[in-house]
């Protein structure tokens, strides 16, 4: 079991309110991702759930029991830290066995679980090394191993991949998702990277300045962002926002259209001058200026288009893909 409920939880450091009161429900077995820009309070929220910080007000329930005052060790949660926080003077084996040793589990069971975790995570060959002798990805796996042997009610990950290089990050992303499918345990995952959020999550919680902007599945957030912040944060490249006359035509203060929903061609209602084009092979992201709209546009075209810098091109946005926002940046249904 691993159902977690936050009720009117808030957190202040001194006079600074980092997290205004918020409610959040996390179901058993869900993969929840907290995403938001740096400094928005994701780690703080995770640490509140872990019990490493005390809530200023509100309550936290785990599996229906009030855990607000429960010390971290008794909450049945396991955490993987951004710095991995491995114990440098212990071997991989001892690192993974540490929580079991603290729980005074008998040695045979400890050995069995450690061997099991090591084989699941491909660590068997390194089991007697110290963390200092491992690569970043291996350290990451040791940290995960230390979390899974406890068979916790939920896993908490705080930006676990941010110290890895790009290729390794994609690999570990898959491994963690696979681990979630296999263990079927609740996971709460913090990241500032919306790609990680989109690819891994069952449910994304978008945070800004400690406030939950929207909660939903990746597709919900992509298709129906509740406000301009979420619209701009989810999706890559970023959504184009247009104000002024063009928005008036749609009776909105601001309209948004994603780069993948604008077609490039010889005719169309908009036209502009090609600026920088980023070729990714599969796609090309074209930055277009002098459009006559309030802002420059980014457009996603197929990989094979051949435009040169300075060409004038026509654009045809897909009418059913406009997002409309009012003066306060809220979505107009």
């Amino acid at each position: 079991m691993g159902q977690i409920q936050l009720k009117q939880v808030s957190k202040s450091f001194g006079d600074v309110e980092v997290i205004p009161p918020l409610d959040l429900q996390i179901e058993d077995g869900e993969f929840v991702v907290f995403v938001g820009p740096s400094g928005c309070g994701k780690s703080t929220l995770l640490r509140l759930i872990a019990g490493l910080e005390d809530v200023t007000a509100g309550s936290i329930e785990i599996d229906g029991n009030d855990a607000t005052a429960t010390p971290p060790a008794k909450r049945g949660l396991a955490m993987v830290f951004q710095s991995y926080a491995l114990y440098p003077h212990m071997s991989v084996r001892k690192n993974i066995a540490f929580p079991l040793k603290m729980a005074k589990m008998d040695q045979a069971e400890v050995d069995k679980r450690v061997a099991n975790a090591a084989s699941v995570l491909n660590l068997t060959d390194y089991i007697d090394r110290r963390p200092g002798q491992l690569s970043g990805g291996q350290r990451q796996r040791v940290a995960i191993g230390r979390a899974i042997v406890r068979e916790p009610a939920a896993f908490l990950f705080d930006e676990p991949l941010s110290n890895l290089d790009a290729a390794l990050r994609i690999g570990m992303r898959l491994e963690i998702s696979e681990l979630h499918k296999r263990l079927d345990t609740t996971m709460i995952y913090v990241t500032h990277d919306q790609v990680e959020a989109m690819t891994m999550a069952d449910k994304i919680v978008v945070l800004q300045a400690g406030v939950i902007e929207q909660v939903g599945s990746p597709l919900e957030l992509y298709q129906a962002p509740r406000n301009k912040f979420v619209a701009g944060f989810i999706g890559s490249p970023k959504m184009n926002f247009i104000e002024g006359n063009e928005a008036q035509k749609h009776s909105a203060h601001t309209i948004g259209i994603r780069p993948e929903h604008i077609e490039v061609g010889d005719s169309g209602p908009w036209k502009g001058v090609v600026g920088v084009a980023e070729h990714l092979g599969s796609d090309t992201f074209i930055h277009i200026h002098d459009t006559g709209l309030t802002d420059p546009l980014t457009v996603r075209a197929s990989g094979e288009v051949a435009f040169s810098y300075g060409d004038t091109i026509h654009l045809r946005p897909r009418d059913d893909r406009f997002h409309r926002f009012d003066e306060r940046g809220m979505r107009i249904a």
Partner: peptide, 8 residues
């Protein structure tokens, strides 16, 4: 903190 969560 990790040790604390590990029950130490």
């Amino acid at each position: 903190e990790a040790a604390e969560m590990d029950g130490a």
